[in-house]
Design a protein around this nucleic acid. Structure first.
Length: 334
DNA sequence: GTCCGGGATA
DNA sequence: TATCCCGGAC
């Protein structure tokens, strides 16, 4: 049974799995590492252009280790979860001093940004090490195939799934097997539209056999997201816009952002020659939603901060809402 | 517009 | 446990 599970997946992967992704063309552990970090919490189609740009700018470990954090964050701009970029940069410096890329899951998981599952994926793809992954897609496959009740966020459920993951590992072709699990979870065994007819595991899938495919995995209880509001001040002067560096902790840490209007603060302190309200929109985070108002302020008054041209701003480490607002400002602005 | 999927860290 | 982002489906 255990043998069969992996054998079926390996066979399926050879026929139907993806083998042409940019990071699959080599066994370069550096390239695989970068791809696995980008793929955390992020879909393949989103990652591909970022991965291409990143590898062009930093083709190897030394290039990344010697880069500035700002350059790394700039190439990460828009991808989200910026601590991934900071951890990647930090780990590159550590690895550069080490001189050798670790090849065991244990050593890899000691690096910043690499947890148990990511360590296993890198070890399997780059070094053919026999190690179990357990990402969100794989959890869904397991919940359905084994009919595991409870949502995967629960500790007990997750522990059971790790045990399954370890016990199902094949003796060989670990890379092929690992990719198969990922592809199956991301493709056929999707949350909303599972294509059970095409699934190589359908004959043994408990959810399928008991008609509970759409009930498993059980979703986590949902929390109502609080709504916060902010007003971005887009100060324009002599063809440049004013930015501030975000604090080192919290949302968008260390990225560049527009100054925010303080509570009760009046726009007149900026001595505006002209103001224009830009359309507001809502940006979603994990734990709250942020309603963003933006006001374009033409000012003659100098103010401390980082003044950038539009071109410079677009090449800077900025979060997506800032990029969105920049796209709405017609040029030239004063 | 709203909802949902997707790992690591302190 | 709470915190950290965005794109795509609907």
């Amino acid at each position: 049974m255990t043998q069969e599970f992996s054998a079926i997946l390996i066979e399926w992967q050879k026929r139907h799995g993806r083998r042409d992704l940019p990071w699959q063309i080599s066994n370069d552990p550096y390239a695989i590492w970068v791809s696995e970090i980008m793929l955390q919490q992020t879909q393949v189609v989103t990652v591909i252009p970022y991965y291409e740009r990143f590898l062009s700018a930093f083709p190897n470990l030394e290039a990344l280790a010697s880069a500035s954090l700002d350059d790394v964050l700039s190439l990460w701009s828009g991808l989200g979860y910026y601590s991934r970029a900071r951890n990647l940069h930090k780990a590159a410096k550590m690895l550069s001093n080490l001189g050798k890329f670790p090849d065991s899951p244990e050593a890899l998981s000691g690096l910043p940004g690499i947890g148990r599952s990511t360590a296993a994926a890198i070890a399997a793809f780059a070094f053919s090490r026999r190690a179990a992954i357990l990402d969100g897609n794989v959890k869904r496959v397991f919940a359905r195939f084994f009919g595991i009740e409870g949502h995967p966020g629960e500790k007990g459920v997750e522990n059971r799934m790790w045990e399954k993951a370890e016990s199902l590992l094949p003796e060989s072709e670990i890379g092929c097997y690992t990719q198969a699990l990922m592809d199956l979870g991301a493709g056929l065994c999707s949350r909303r539209n599972p294509d059970c007819a095409k699934c190589p595991l359908n004959s043994g899938c408990i959810a399928r056999l008991s008609g509970r495919v759409h009930e498993l995995p059980q979703p986590a209880p949902k929390k109502a997201l609080p709504l916060r509001e902010t007003t971005f001040l887009v100060l324009a002067r002599e063809g440049r816009l004013l930015f501030e560096r975000r604090p080192g902790k919290g949302i968008w840490a260390e990225l560049l952002c527009f100054p925010e209007l303080a509570q009760g603060q009046d726009l007149s302190v900026f001595d505006p020659s002209n103001t224009e309200c830009l359309p507001s929109f809502t940006h979603a985070f994990t734990h709250f939603r942020l309603k963003i108002e933006a006001v374009l302020i033409e000012t003659g008054k100098h103010r401390e901060g980082i003044w950038l041209s539009m071109e410079e701003a677009l090449a800077s480490p900025i979060p997506n809402p800032v990029r969105k607002i920049l796209g709405r400002i017609r040029q030239p602005f004063p």
